[in-house]
Nucleic acid binder design. Structure first.
Lengths: 343, 343
DNA sequence: ACCAAGTGCCCAAACGATTTGGCAGGTCAC
DNA sequence: GTGACCTGCCAAATCGTTTGGGCACTTGGT
């Protein structure tokens, strides 16, 4: 039971393989008798003809295949969303994803890229699992590349990133809108675009409402639950405690929940909490469910594919660069934000 | 800057492409002058020759590519581990993963398989994100396939699954070893291999120690945090409350934490808790950190690739079937288990 | 009746590797 | 000296598709 090829279709339709190819690919500038066309299409369908992508790729040097290189995939649920977004967007265009993740090892990365090129990928998505600045490996220069959740030092390579500042703004506004004026910011200690952007958003939102920025209200620690616990504990245990906390991520928010619990503060009655990332495993399972700001991972994956395709076959003119696409971070309101207690 | 092909190497080494191919592929039964061999190898390396996988695949109908079909990838962190395992194991064999997930939609699944075949994958990994019985799509009959974290109705297709019963046994033993005798089982309501196996393990462990099985100690609810909360609340609020809880998964354990907290019971001083799945986002970030039993996702991915390869090129004889591989679920001890309180 | 243009299709050469079946030339035995 | 055999290499076919360049035949104008 051999797979049937273009020749089989040609034979069955009584024409040459050339003609079949022309018809199925709707080649421009080739004149085909409508009757012949109909016959060929019918026969092809009846026989269940599927072109062999290898042969086609060999001839056209297009494989309908995109490499997906990521640093870490196993340890973060974000990866799944990005992949899913890329995949869905790819499916619409007939693209498949060739996965490869390197754990950040540059040596592995080199091999990975070589492998992908060897397999003739049409382009590469280079994804980071948290928003950061990466150095694009030089081997990628020869392949169309788009960065996902990462910025590059090299402005020539397009990237798709979340709008961290708008996210911080949104989160803080949500607290302000509920009447909070004394808002603590539980942040992390790394100097990455995420921290900088979210802090900027926090400050911008405060400024909008004419609330003064109080450095004592921002406490940094490790970006995990224990870190969030310590930072929140410090803030909530202080004399003039904030009525709401904006946490750098959901893991830190999880720690903040524990801090509040230990101090006998109910969420959201006594203190409101808002997170970031929308890690559903946490945000949905905490009690009360955590209001947070979502990172648009799915969209990043999808948009990255769109960008990549724009690079692979440029529309008509050499489109201007506009290489960096910034995506909106939507609010996901759940149950952890309420008006401040009347003191 | 064209990619260099086998002919370039041949020309540079002063031999024919045939010879180069023979040397690089170490074709058996071909006699090659050691000197020629050395020259060719050197030249190939110097030129950085990489065979074009498309051309090679076209000729040999082997693409060094494996399809990875999964139902859900975006919503679960498990996926990453399986993928990582498969990928690492694949890398050792020069295999790449072609990702495709279908959301369980049979229509999409059909298309996915067609696409993969079109791309000439050597085999397919069909992965489920939780251990269940699946029906293998008929299209997959024509392609070497291995099931990951799933069993099939069809015994002909090999599968790699976790040893749920041993996991339940391990978890319960851990509690018994700390001296607990009255152990609640917070389980879920679905009738899947996971529930059945873990319950069987629970009972087996009790029997080992001569502890009677008390049906009142197993409470089923939805397999999320609220479900775990309700079940744990029921168990811990009862007259003769258990001193330890074995929870069907980490999400339910998270709910059990809240139940204990509300009842003023400290973990692990008043009540010990053990989970299942080792979802690190939860188990590591809970306080105290959750002892749990890990599902061997990484290993499942890796073993599945090994199985797949055994199917693709059988060692020598037609190996017997032994299609179902059951993997060990290791204990991950953290801080949520301690001896029972002296009453 | 003849030429030009147009129509509808096909031939054959790629693409870059693997693989089958030799083919020169040398060695050895007799 | 000659046939058998080995050694070391190569030419050409092949995988399944796309594509540039025709080729034969019809049509329409004059």
């Amino acid at each position: 039971m051999k797979r049937i090829g273009i020749k089989d279709v040609a034979a069955a339709a009584g024409v040459s393989a050339t003609t079949v190819s022309h018809i199925l690919n709707e080649v421009a500038g080739k004149r085909i008798n409508p009757e012949t066309r109909a016959t060929v299409l019918r026969v092809a369908r009846e026989l269940g003809y599927r072109p062999n992508n290898l042969a086609r790729g060999l001839r056209t040097s297009r494989t309908n295949t995109v490499g997906f290189i990521s640093d870490e995939i196993a340890t973060t649920p974000h990866a799944g969303q990005i992949i899913q977004g890329a995949q869905d967007a790819g499916a619409e265009r007939g693209l498949l994803l060739l996965m490869l993740n390197t754990g950040g090892d540059p040596e592995l990365e080199r091999k990975a890229i070589t492998l992908l090129v060897q397999h003739g990928v049409d382009g590469v998505l280079y994804a980071s699992m948290y928003h950061r600045v990466v150095q694009v490996p030089p081997q990628l220069r020869s392949v169309p590349t788009v960065l996902v959740d990462a910025s590059s030092d090299d402005p020539a390579v397009p990237s798709v990133v979340p709008d961290e500042e708008q996210g911080g703004l949104t989160a803080t506004r949500e607290l302000l809108a509920h009447g909070h004026r004394r808002i603590g910011f539980v942040t992390n200690t790394d100097d990455i675009p995420a921290s900088r952007g979210r802090l900027a958003g926090y400050r911008a939102a405060l400024a909008e409402r004419g609330v003064g920025f109080d450095p004592a209200l921002v406490v940094a620690d490790r970006s995990d639950a224990p870190g969030g616990y310590r930072a929140a504990r410090a803030l909530l245990g202080s004399a003039h405690r904030p009525t709401a906390l904006f946490c750098f991520n959901d893991r830190m928010a999880m720690g903040a929940y524990r801090a509040a619990g230990e101090l006998g503060l109910a969420i959201p009655a006594d203190v409101s909490v808002i997170g970031f990332d929308n890690q559903e495993l946490i945000s949905e399972n905490l009690h009360p469910a955590l209001s947070t700001v979502a990172l648009p991972h799915y969209e990043m994956g999808a948009r990255a594919i769109a960008r990549l395709q724009a690079v692979i076959d440029p529309p008509d003119t050499t489109t201007g660069p506009a290489p960096r696409e910034v995506l909106h971070c939507p609010l996901v309101a759940r149950d952890s934000v309420a008006p401040p207690p009347r003191s």
